[in-house]
Design a protein around this nucleic acid. Sequence first.
DNA 1: TTAAAATAAATTGTGTACAATTGAATTGTA
DNA 2: TACAATTCAATTGTACACAATTTATTTTAA
Lengths: 142, 142
Amino acid sequence: MEKDCLKLENQLCFPLYAASRNVIKKYKPFLDELDLTYTQYITMMVLWDLKEINVKELGNKLYLDSGTLTPLLKTLESKGYVSRVRSSSDERNLLICLTAEGGKLKDKAASIPTKVSKCINLNPDEALSLYKILYKILEGGE
Amino acid sequence: MEKDCLKLENQLCFPLYAASRNVIKKYKPFLDELDLTYTQYITMMVLWDLKEINVKELGNKLYLDSGTLTPLLKTLESKGYVSRVRSSSDERNLLICLTAEGGKLKDKAASIPTKVSKCINLNPDEALSLYKILYKILEGGE
DNA sequence: TTAAAATAAATTGTGTACAATTGAATTGTA
DNA sequence: TACAATTCAATTGTACACAATTTATTTTAA
């Protein structure tokens, strides 16, 4: 009986992993219009909200490290959506700042959450339940 | 109000993406002992169950394409866990077969699901609810 | 029956993820 | 105040993901 534990259909992590990729794919046609990948998009979300943040804090919010963020932020800089400046008070910190160009993207992105949620077949109860469980996983360990 | 839709904390996809990576990380110490990555592990799960499958069907089960699977399966072959043989009835198909060595891994893996579930802070109701919602997402579109 | 269409895997190229290491800047402390 | 420890970002190296294209094989339909 122990063996059924190793069947794909009895796993919780596998559908979590597959559903995550599945939903991210639904963003693609909308994000293509903004010339953003999904990871770049969630980075821009933080910046649309805060305007400025250093790499460390950004990594804490996105659960990503500098190995992922450094090249991604250089790409966003090359697109003109953010600037990268060393903090004068502590040269170890790199400040990521939203540019005017990056700010304009927010308007174009405003309709994306609604459009994507229409592609996902969940009712409000399920969505809320999912949200709570996912944050319980995220908070329950790191 | 439209603007709050673009806040990270109001997204459903972001915690899905973050929780997926968070849980996969919990497998790492256990999978390191088997010299498997998470993607290699779920591939082995299919093979422990079916013994043999072609790349196309494997991709359907894992929601992955040949671009991901081809190099991964070559790695598993080099580790001695699978063999790769063209189907004689249709040379387009590549059959992936569990080797004896690969079969032995199943015993070593048997305890992993229990160990990982102890690292995830969910009660049985939450786990079942999550499972159902994730499969609803997966079935609801592709 | 043979040429076009379809199918399967491999390949190519880009962009993450992430562990581990490095290097520069800052902080704590003897 | 030096200097060891810490912190932050960048770098290095490996392994996915995935879109798009290519190559080989098989199927189909004229």
